[in-house]
Write a protein that binds this DNA or RNA. Structure first.
Lengths: 223, 223
DNA sequence: TGCGCTGAGACGTCGGATGTCTCAGCTCAT
DNA sequence: ATGAGCTGAGACATCCGACGTCTCAGCGCA
């Protein structure tokens, strides 16, 4: 195995074993390199790789730190990976989302706060009846994120965030400008919100399913 | 932005835009470095990072290639990330799995082949009534993987694979040697298989839910 | 007391040298 | 003619040392 890969494993081991705690600072590159028995260049490759997936946080002029290791942070790397997929697998991602999002919405029904409900309502009101596509996409993203956050499961939240990342979402919405898609989306959002207000988990789940299924159907027909 | 990060973005762009196709070979390091306007050392950091998340495949003495970009391959990186999470977030991962796995099992009910059903049955038979913990863990992993593969959604499959990776799973099962957990697990597996044979998606979903919920409950009580 | 400067320390980048590995193509015996 | 085995070119692996840039703490001055 290459020394760099060994270094990655060793650093991973130090973190998993607890020798390096979240937020803690690593020895400086030259020291860590000699500790692990490799050159600074090779060590840097390992550090760079771990920093891409948000395990390490490198600050020039300061030092290298272990991140908080929040699920939110780590799963952020997922969206990077998702970006590489082309349209042919988008349907599969969407299918997964169709499983997760309704479940998350249902979970949120019993936990979401009044303030959060009000905030979501205000957001929908602000959008108006004839938003631009860009506004709608941004609003859609915020709306669902807001709900999923209230599910109380940060892993679930990050996962959905990654799955329905800007790229995927934007690609789906593009070309959807015509039709009654906009008004239907707005209507579905209001229905979801109403179900949440009623604390009706099953209704919320159903509306969320319908909401995503309609996108899925449209996408399937155009592909 | 650091030159290495720029390089990562540029390589990513080349792949996403289609300039570099899956399986294709990259220019040699020195050429690519000068193309992108940075040193070979810095470029190597970028390449190493992309290779950690399975975007690139570096073969010494040969060259650097774009991987197949299969969802399966890319989401493999997920398990690497999951490894970093400690017990306090395992419950959240498990909750997500409790959402996905029953859905996948239900999907499989209508698609799984007779051969696959037979193979799963044979696997359970081979295990016997008193397997060791290690055998049970391996069997459990295989059993669920086999079913989820029959869901026909490779993203879903890889995602579940990552979520219930060896580490998490092993950690959960450790200490579960006593009790009636083993026999109950075997019984639940048989029930899931029977539901699949009946092509009864809802029964399969329910058994899968029960199966995971029991692990979740046990874990919650010991944490 | 507070602002601003300054220097030590840490990461960022580079160029070059050398080792190791892979693969294609050649040689040669069968 | 064919196959094994050798060999050399090419590509990645690793290291070294040097210099640039940035951050932050601490000093000095108003």
């Amino acid at each position: 195995m290459a020394v760099t890969d060994e270094a990655i494993e060793k650093i991973k081991g130090m973190i998993v074993s607890g020798a390096l705690r979240p937020g803690e600072r690593l020895p400086k590159e030259s020291e860590l390199a000699s500790e692990l028995g490799l050159s600074r260049n090779s060590l840097r490759e390992a550090v760079r790789a771990l920093s891409l997936i948000r395990i390490l946080d490198v600050r020039q002029g300061d030092g290298t730190y272990v991140t908080s290791l929040d699920p939110q942070l780590l799963l952020e790397a997922l969206s990077f990976v998702v970006d590489f997929h082309r349209d042919d697998t988008v349907l599969e991602f969407l299918a997964v989302r169709r499983i997760l999002e309704p479940a998350a919405t249902a979970m949120a029904a019993s936990r979401i706060s009044e303030q959060q409900l009000d905030a979501l309502g205000a957001q929908l009101d602000k959008l108006g009846a004839n938003p631009s596509v860009e506004e709608l996409v941004a609003s859609d993203l915020d709306f669902h994120r807001g709900i999923v956050q209230s599910s109380g499961n940060s892993v679930l939240c990050s996962l959905l965030d990654g799955l329905s990342g800007p790229t995927t979402r934007a690609r789906i919405w593009r070309g959807l400008t015509q039709e009654d898609a906009v008004s239907r989306t707005l209507h579905e959002h209001r229905a979801i919100l109403a179900a949440l207000r009623d604390r009706d988990g099953e209704a919320a789940r159903s509306w969320a399913t319908v909401h995503i299924a309609s996108v899925e159907q449209w996408l399937r027909s155009t592909l």
